[in-house]
Design a protein around this nucleic acid. Structure first.
Lengths: 208, 208
DNA sequence: AACTGTGAAGTTTTTCACAGCC
DNA sequence: GGCTGTGAAAAACTTCACAGTT
């Protein structure tokens, strides 16, 4: 997990911040202005002490006796996670999954904008998928470099995931969200996260 | 996390087993017959000691001096995770995401078969999506009960996720994989897991 | 009265390191 | 020589409990 070890703040804490942020935005949408570690904890099924301790790593965001101002805390968490800016993202793979990702409206208002969709197949290249025209993988490095893209989502078959990841890293990508059901090796300074629904299902079947 | 606390084996260990299984099947596909905790660890970026300790919870699967028989270990892990049988799964939500899930070929050979696709929208009901004809949510409880379905994937808008989850639980579903970007409350005896790509992206941007 | 922020205590998880076996 | 399985040690993480503030 790369640059994690040199950070003073545990990675497991960082991993919870997006959940706090998501819940807080929900509370805001419901019209609430103030919340407490207890209310958040109840919603997220996390102890209130955990939430207070996590947040305390970044400063005193709350008020004793009152709780947390939702709007203020949202801003602070977005600052910490660096999602007050908009990140430009590339998607590689224009199959069913890449297509679904490209159509998804939920990235925009949480800090991410998809800028390009790449595919290697000549039949896909040139097609319009959602708001994008599929570009050839042969143009990938050049485009990513030109636009300074730092984040990519990988939705190619498992067989090609490592090769494409290598190209992405070579082109300057520093964070990869890998949807292919395979482990990938990247340099220590590159972030990687995985999405594989089957691992979640298999985790649950243990308990059934 | 429900029934977890009464188990002798830590949930965090259970969560890694699907990753081991995935890597082992990959090794098998590459033609390998034997592996070691070191080789697995290198691929997964997990320490070899961790892997040995995790596996030792379920019995001595390896041979000193030799390592692990890949085929044998795959079978054992599939037994432990109960994925030697095929689980029948329902998908709720026939939008882009539900459609992508329904088209995905990767569930079948890892223990899961999608049996039904539900949607509430009258325009969607009756459409053919992948191998499925979209069924109305009004038929959901009845169908799930009749087929004894225990697992559901939730791909509806965040606003409807809790309501649909309640109906699923009421109909007998015991495990839900929620793709909606919102926390859901379910009874203690029901498993729930989340997939939200944005939380992963936000986790990574912290380090950029 | 209600709530935060936080040291200290408690618990869980990981790593170490090595005996035992192939 | 290489590897597993495992107690013991170390590290990481969570919870407790309460002083301090509104």
């Amino acid at each position: 997990m790369s640059s994690v070890s040199m950070s003073a703040i545990p990675d497991i804490v960082i991993g919870r911040l997006p959940l706090y942020l998501r819940a807080l935005r929900r509370l805001r949408q419901e019209g609430k202005q103030v919340t407490s570690s207890h209310e958040l904890g109840r919603r997220l099924d996390i102890s209130s002490a955990q939430i207070r301790k996590d947040l305390s790593h970044f400063g005193g965001f709350g008020k004793q006796g009152t709780g947390y101002q939702i709007e203020f805390l949202i801003e602070r968490l977005q600052d910490v996670l660096q999602v007050n800016q908009e990140w430009t993202v590339a998607v590689v793979g224009a199959g069913n999954l890449g297509s679904a990702i490209s159509h998804y409206r939920g990235f925009q208002d949480r800090g991410f904008r998809i800028a390009h969709l790449f595919d290697i197949s000549p039949e896909k290249v040139g097609l319009r998928i959602g708001a994008f025209v599929v570009l050839p993988v042969s143009k990938m490095s050049e485009t990513i470099r030109k636009d300074g893209i730092k984040i990519a989502m990988l939705a190619v078959p498992a067989e090609h995931a490592q090769t494409v990841a290598d190209q992405l890293v070579e082109a300057g990508v520093q964070a990869i969200l890998n949807y292919a059901p395979i482990n990938i090796n990247v340099p220590d300074n590159v972030q990687i996260q995985y999405i594989d629904p089957v691992t979640h299902l298999q985790h649950m079947t243990y308990y059934l």
